[in-house]
């Protein structure tokens, strides 16, 4: 995610502040977060500061690291902070772990986040099998509703066989 203030660097800090009884949340980069911290009156956000909610404001802003930022990939030891430094991911699992944080970057790089090209044969076979199982499942439900138990048992066997295949 990009810093919501400068729109340039990647956000690493989750910034919350209560202004006029409203909780304001922002994702900021480290640099912007530091600057914000020095003038905790909510002016940078364009809120009206002249109202009596000053007391609440004085609670000051609270910071917490963006959740995924402190997470480390259990498969390869990569942290999001390391990714930002080297620009590379460590393993397949990193894509799952940092997925949401990566999306804005992918959008910027490719204008898209969903693959539409080639699919490996074993994967597309699995996708087809899943679709087939789904269709059979529907037939099964209908058969049960109609109390055609013999037919239902037949369909159930087919589904089991397909599921075994898929697991391979």
């Amino acid at each position: 995610m990009l810093c919501q203030f400068c729109q340039k660097r990647i956000a690493t800090v989750h910034f919350t502040q209560v202004v006029n009884g409203n909780k304001v949340e922002m994702y900021l980069c480290e640099q912007c977060a530091k600057e914000k911290g020095q003038f905790s009156f909510g002016s940078p956000f364009g809120f009206n500061d002249f109202f009596p909610a000053i007391m609440e404001l004085n609670q000051g802003p609270s910071y917490s690291a963006v959740k995924s930022n402190v997470q480390v990939c259990e498969k390869c030891g990569m942290s999001y902070e390391e990714f930002q430094r080297v620009g590379k991911l460590g393993c397949s699992n990193c894509y799952t772990l940092f997925g949401e944080l990566l999306k804005p970057l992918l959008k910027r790089l490719h204008g898209n986040t969903q693959h539409s090209g080639k699919v490996p044969e074993n994967v597309s076979r699995n996708i087809n099998t899943s679709k087939e199982i789904e269709a059979l499942q529907e037939l099964l439900n209908k058969a049960v509703q109609r109390e055609e138990y013999e037919k239902a048992a037949e369909i159930r066997d087919k589904i089991r066989a397909l599921e075994r295949d898929k697991g391979k």
Partner: peptide, 23 residues
């Protein structure tokens, strides 16, 4: 791909070390 399993994700496609090659 008949002999080795490539890193592939339904959403992201072929997974690459650098996001600039993803998909």
């Amino acid at each position: 791909e008949k002999k080795v399993k490539f890193a592939f994700d339904d959403h992201y496609g072929y997974l690459t070390c650098c996001p600039t090659n993803l998909g």
